[in-house]
Amino acid sequence: MGQQLINKEHITHKRSMKAFIRKHIGWLFIIVSVLAIGLFYFYPMIEAFLLSFQSGAGASLKYVGFDNWMRLFGDPSFLAALINTSIYLLVQVPVMIVLALIFSVLLNDPTLKFRGFFRTAIFLPCVTSLVAYSVIFKYLFGVDGIVNHFLLNVGAISESINFLADPIWAKIIIILAITWRWTGYNMIFYLSSLQNVDHSIYEAARIDGANAFQQFFQITIPLLKPIILFTSITSTIGTLQLFDEVMNITQGGPGNATLSISQYIYNLSFEYTPDFGYAATVSYVIVILIVFLSIIQFKVAGDKK
């Protein structure tokens, strides 16, 4: 009798042990990442936050309270950067995501010939060195560049356009450059996720008489939703932190017409007499914007929280 009781207790204990392990083993899976992120990203991030309340040249920083945050509102360079970045974001991210989706669906077709070649070619821009492609873009769109030659020859324009010296054209070129470079990159994420989609779903849909468009909108898009959410958030982050293209193609010019927030941060930290405090404040503007946009994107995607 007593023995039985102990056994029973032992069993329930064992069972609860197992339940306990199952409930908490998840932490074991994430513990390394959480510690590393905490040390290498979260802790410096807090330091940067404290820095955003300080100002001064180089190593001589002083606490200035909310001065940096107030300074943002009266800083024309910052406002220009904010507006430019918003334009890049609104125009470029949707176009790129849609293009990448189209490419990935086309290139996922097993009956397509030269698939590997096409995929590699479309992926190549994000591998191509920044140095090379900034030189190329400047040549293509120079006053006597190839694009102008072409447009003049076909009679579309009567006089060369100085693309990089015109505030609107320069922005368009930056948008083209980002799209050119990152579409293939985003395509990878879709391509890889498409493999996880069971092909029989498409077979079934085809039997039901769904055409390619219907398949795309009613099967592919809903199935890829987690990845579409992923790419929209990471592209949003990428665009808000945009630096390489601007730095290498226009350096923010003409005037401040193409300046991005990240390039302004770079200028404040390295190009001018460094003010790491104010640079940190501007960085946190990016953080706030992304947090805000990400919440919207999570909501739109209907990701259950």
Binding site: F40, F42, P44, M45, T234, Q241, S262, A279, S283, V287
Partner: peptide, 14 residues
């Protein structure tokens, strides 16, 4: 959240 801060901002503390 840590993905959202520009790397330049955390470089000095790091």
């Amino acid at each position: 959240l840590t993905m959202m801060i520009p790397f330049a901002a955390i470089m000095v503390p790091l």
